[in-house]
Computed example of a mutant assay.
Amino acid sequence: MFLSLTLCALLIEAACGYPDAVFRRIGHPVTWIGALITALEKRLNRSGSVATLRACGLAALIMIVGVPVLLALLVQSALRTLLPAPLAFMIEALLASTLLAQRALYTHVHAVLLGWQQEGLAGARQTVSQIVGRDPETLDRAGVIRAAIESLAENFSDGVVAPVFWMLAFGLPGVVAYKAINTADSMIGHLSPRYRDFGRAAALCDDCLNIPASRLAALWLCSAALLGHCSVTGALAAIRRDAAMHRSPNAGWPEAAMAGALALRLAGPRHYAGTLVADSWMGNGTEDARPDDLAKALALYRLACLIQAGCVTALLAGVWI
């Protein structure tokens, strides 16, 4: 059941994405989860001891996950009770597709390439600032392109592979739970003074949930490199040498794979809010990333998405046979 649901959700999202008109009218499930996180953070993240803040953060995380999952279970039950099975299945797949980001991720990263082509460095800086947190004014052409490629690689794991993995494992409630935790991590799982203790549970939980997806994302990118005439040996070497050196326990895997496949150096020292973050380099290629490299990264990403969908299809065919 979950194989069919996941494949249908992937196909729907690839074909339609999440329409802007729908977003303007009702928002998006992630924005609804974000509103819940904001409300809980304001109420529970107050002064106190480290133990108190961590306990409040854990309680908040339980509600952040529990409320959306409970709603998903209620909707799922209502669909299966009130509607014919084929119609209930298609609506469930449509709902699940809203929690995948393969089309949206391509669109947002491709916008950086369009910004460069239409307005040069200023346009590229403006568009890349919408998908990364680093200071855009500190980025030259190569820095902008590297930032876009890094975002593409990392979010391929977080926004595409991980939701698919947890949907395959637990269906609609599984992907809802994952997106709730991942959204919590992005909003409160920081090491800033405000969130260091309160967001600790969200950050740790997100790190654990993304372990399988980050490794799978690297595998899909290596497979895409093999089929897409990029350097699969470079991707494998970069993963083996550099992935564990990234400050994130998971982001280094897809970033190293992408860097090695394209013969680039990604990650490395970066500026966030005026502060230099010294991170290790992924890959041993050139730092001088060019717009053509971003075009190649986007092509590699699309091929990796197709490989993932193909694997889901093969698993489903194996079950039917």
Rank of each mutant, 00 (worst) to 15 (best):
W116E: 01
L294E: 04
L87F: 12
A162V: 06
P193N: 03
F23T: 11
R25H: 11
C222S: 06
R240Y: 07
D20L: 09
L11G: 01
L204D: 07
A142L: 06
F198D: 00
Q126F: 11
H190T: 00
T52E: 15
L276P: 13
L139E: 01
N284R: 15
Y18E: 06
G123P: 09
L152V: 08
P249F: 08
G228R: 04
V160H: 09
I91E: 07
A237S: 11
V22N: 05
Y301M: 00
P163D: 04
A162P: 11
F89Q: 03
A256R: 10
N45Y: 10
R54I: 00
A237E: 11
E287C: 14
F165R: 01
E41Q: 09
N155I: 02
I181W: 06
Q308T: 07
A88R: 07
G189M: 06
L94H: 08
S4H: 13
E154I: 10
A177K: 10
Q76V: 00
C230H: 13
F2N: 15
L71Q: 03
F23M: 09
C8Q: 14
A169Q: 12
R241L: 06
C305G: 05
P193K: 03
G283P: 13
A93Q: 09
A93R: 12
N284S: 13
I62V: 12
G228P: 08
V277R: 15
A122N: 14
M282G: 03
G66L: 08
I307W: 12
G318L: 11
A238T: 04
M282K: 05
A169Y: 13
R290V: 00
D292T: 08
Q118G: 01
L226N: 05
I307T: 00
L227H: 09
R46L: 03
K296R: 15
D20S: 13
G199W: 03
L264P: 12
L73D: 02
N250E: 05
W220S: 05
V144C: 09
A148T: 03
I307V: 08
L73M: 08
L40C: 02
A72R: 04
R196I: 04
S192P: 12
